[in-house]
Design a protein around this nucleic acid. Structure first.
Lengths: 106, 106
DNA sequence: GTACATATATTGACCGTCGATATATATTGA
DNA sequence: TCAATATATATCGACGGTCAATATATGTAC
């Protein structure tokens, strides 16, 4: 799973959000490192829905604009959990290598 | 940076390795989760060399077969370091969310 | 002698992201 | 009042990295 997809799932972990809300939350989660683009977001949401990791929540109209909400499925939560563990493991393996190679600077 | 690329750099962190050695090391590092394919490896090595993250080391002939070694550059080491930190941060952010949402099961 | 492990290399297909563009409304400021 | 910016969803073509398949060659094990 690639970074934008991972951050979309993470943004939905605590509550349903609409597309633009996801963009803002990903900005927050990544400390503005990842600027989620509309093209990435909406194609990703369609794909994740087809995979059963995300599903449509309610539609709302706020201040004259449509808000289309999405939420994580149970499976989406599990997949995110497994993915987070995988990332942590990758980081740990690499950091162990780096420490072994540079014991005084690491 | 995608997972195979990250694991290639990690495999080279402690010592120079030749292509097939990288494939074996990635298998070890990932607990056989990632099977690095030749098409991925050799195109990645060319790309990483062009980016200055990896460079050619010596060529050896062992048991009648050519071994072409590669090593990390200083910059490659720095990039790997930054990348590992980024992965750890991603994992941490997601895990915090998951804990917040499932305080009794996390 | 056949299969498997070792070893490097190329090619086309595929998938997810990027960048650009489109459309529409609300708000802010000149 | 008009322009710029923020909010909000959506589509499209280009691009990059990986996958899958294929090619070639040698050493080892059965």
């Amino acid at each position: 799973m690639r970074e934008p997809t991972f951050l979309i799932l993470t943004a939905l972990a605590d509550q349903p959000r609409h597309g633009y809300g996801i963009i803002q939350e990903v900005d927050t989660l990544s400390a503005s490192r990842v600027a989620l683009l509309p093209g990435t977001l909406y194609t990703a949401l369609d794909r994740l829905a087809a995979q059963g990791l995300v599903e449509r929540d309610r539609d709302e109209v706020a201040e004259g604009r449509l808000r289309r909400y999405y939420r994580l499925t149970d499976n989406g939560l599990k997949v995110l959990d497994a993915e987070a563990a995988r990332l942590r493991q990758l980081a740990t393996v690499a950091e162990a290598r780096l420490r072994a190679v540079r014991p005084r600077t690491a």
